[in-house]
Write a protein that binds this DNA or RNA. Structure first.
Lengths: 134, 134
DNA sequence: ATAAAATCTACACTTGACGTCAGGTTTTTC
DNA sequence: GAAAAACCTGACGTCAAGTGTAGATTTTAT
């Protein structure tokens, strides 16, 4: 009788799904895309995840809200969890991060422009209402 | 011999597509979703558009970049081109615009948070490189 | 020890936002 | 007036990001 596997703080897919607020099917899907992998799979069996998987899924959700595709996320997600080893890897990481920074700044700019437009429209409609009423 | 129809500054779908930088199929699709309609269709025939269609398509593209779905766009696009008539319509318009404003502010906030994180990561990696080199 | 719950793989289906293709009509150009 | 170009509709294809379902196995609870 070999010792049971989920030694310390490992959880199965159902718990991870609940904690991260996604379906277990989504987790399977993300695994296939290389976004996430179980810390181990005993035999031909169940996936076991650690705490990192939860924050990883949260990070994925955050990046999605910023408009990155799952493929793009796959290409950067490890930066948040692995220290790049080797100077070459680090330079590559830096490149990617700088690209992300530039895109983010661009997005912020666009949003600010849009915000101004929306405010203008609000003012215009408020004015119309005031005139119709007064 | 009835007078030809495209009297003044009307254009056909091909010209509109070129000017707005989308395909004609996209225009058909948008029409089906109620995002856009030709100013007229003579007989069983061609669609004719006016200048407004160009700016309308540009506005649609801008809203898409902000992450709105075509359905959501359909529900607000008219605000940019029709002056709401009747106080009830205007109040509704105001509601929608205020919702958009709030969402935009939220997005800007998130982006700023994200930006800060990216900068931290850049600093971290730069530090690693410096240490590895020095 | 057995039933219920959780998980596994694999394949099919869905939705949004188009693109492609086929077959037919209309306009434009030579 | 005939060929070429533009346009029409409708059906099907595609890609991303999942969701659903079936049938089998494993784990957990009683």
């Amino acid at each position: 009788m070999p010792a049971p596997k989920q030694s310390k703080d490992l959880m199965k897919i159902g718990d991870l799904a609940r904690r991260a607020g996604v379906s277990h099917r989504t987790i399977h899907y993300y695994e296939r895309l290389g976004l996430l992998r179980p810390v181990e799979r005993e035999g031909v069996g169940y996936r076991y995840f650690n705490e990192e998987a939860v924050t990883r899924l949260e990070k994925i959700a955050a990046l999605k809200r910023l408009g990155l595709s799952l493929d793009e996320i796959a290409s950067v997600i490890d930066l948040y969890f692995e220290d790049a080893t080797g100077i070459r890897g680090k330079r590559r990481v830096l490149e990617i991060l700088r690209g992300q920074l530039a895109r983010t700044d661009q997005q912020i700019l666009e949003l600010k422009g849009f915000r101004a437009e929306v405010e203008e429209n609000i003012a215009r409609v408020e004015d119309l209402i005031r005139k119709a009423r007064g």
